[in-house]
Design a protein around this nucleic acid. Sequence first.
DNA 1: CAAGGTTTGCAACATTATAACATTTGCAGG
DNA 2: CCTGCAAATGTTATAATGTTGCAAACCTTG
Lengths: 163, 163
Amino acid sequence: MSSRALPYRPHNHDACVSHALAEARAICQQQNARLTPTRERVLELIWQSHKPLGAYDVLAKLTSEGHNAAPPTVYRALDFLQQYGLVHRIASLNAFTGCTHAGKHHTGMFLICRACGNVLELMESSVTTAIENAASAEAFQPEAITLEVAGLCPGCQADQHHE
Amino acid sequence: MSSRALPYRPHNHDACVSHALAEARAICQQQNARLTPTRERVLELIWQSHKPLGAYDVLAKLTSEGHNAAPPTVYRALDFLQQYGLVHRIASLNAFTGCTHAGKHHTGMFLICRACGNVLELMESSVTTAIENAASAEAFQPEAITLEVAGLCPGCQADQHHE
DNA sequence: CAAGGTTTGCAACATTATAACATTTGCAGG
DNA sequence: CCTGCAAATGTTATAATGTTGCAAACCTTG
Ligand SMILES: [Zn+2]
Ligand SMILES: [Zn+2]
Ligand SMILES: [Zn+2]
Ligand SMILES: [Zn+2]
């Protein structure tokens, strides 16, 4: 099955990263936001794989690179990146992952593999609609949706059988 | 509109509590689980309103009652209660709320009012189905769904206009 | 260059959660 | 009733995650 989504199979991940960075630069330029070196580097670190990274993981990488960083350094960069829709926070993991639909208006739905840790972000309007309908039925006005599904990705389901 | 869900209107909340406690006792008895005094008290504290309570809020109440409690006391009780489906953890708030569908097999969907803090737990099979379908389309095997919707409850939408 | 806003450095602190080990409690079998 | 085991609790310390406040550095724009 070669139609599996990117995180679930070997792929040229450098392409993911450079695409994400290019998009980020475009989006920030368009909105007059300053993608400073620290912010860009944090984004790049977040994108180093499809596994979400904790703020303190990012911090460790920064300091190991000689960057003089403290927790606020990282959290501020992450706040900025979230604000411009370049990264998402995964509440159930206390971790951050690069947005794969940057620029497009969307509500993220995250498939989180508990075995390999990779995350796939989906943009399913049918799901969003179902959620909004359920909220409407209670006269509730939704503003932000947190939707995170933990389970096994295709690759890790296969691995289960070999054990 | 008197058909609004309980958390969103004045109601006899003592009935909510005693119902929840009765259910908890029944469920634990049925499963040979020990609803010890501490566990029961924690459940009762969680149920003191429809606003989720942080673990340290619970801890503070316990100690203020003279109970000799430390963080593990509370987390252990909460783990137990979660295990038997009596409370849910709200990941986006790092807080806990009583389950309003205890006993029934369900995936909770939480409507969280950012103004008043009340939470309504829904059980919407249409939403669950849409999520599972989206996961299936990526050959992902879901195990646990975190679905939390932040926004404004009916009451607080009305309050907005008065400001 | 001078003023004013934005970004960063830095130190301290706050909040949430877990680890490790000793002690007590409830209960089943002798 | 005892005895011994497993489950539950007490206790202390520590880990992990996130925030506040203030001063210095840095753009940008007139
Ligand atoms: Zn990739
Ligand atoms: Zn996997
Ligand atoms: Zn109630
Ligand atoms: Zn409200």
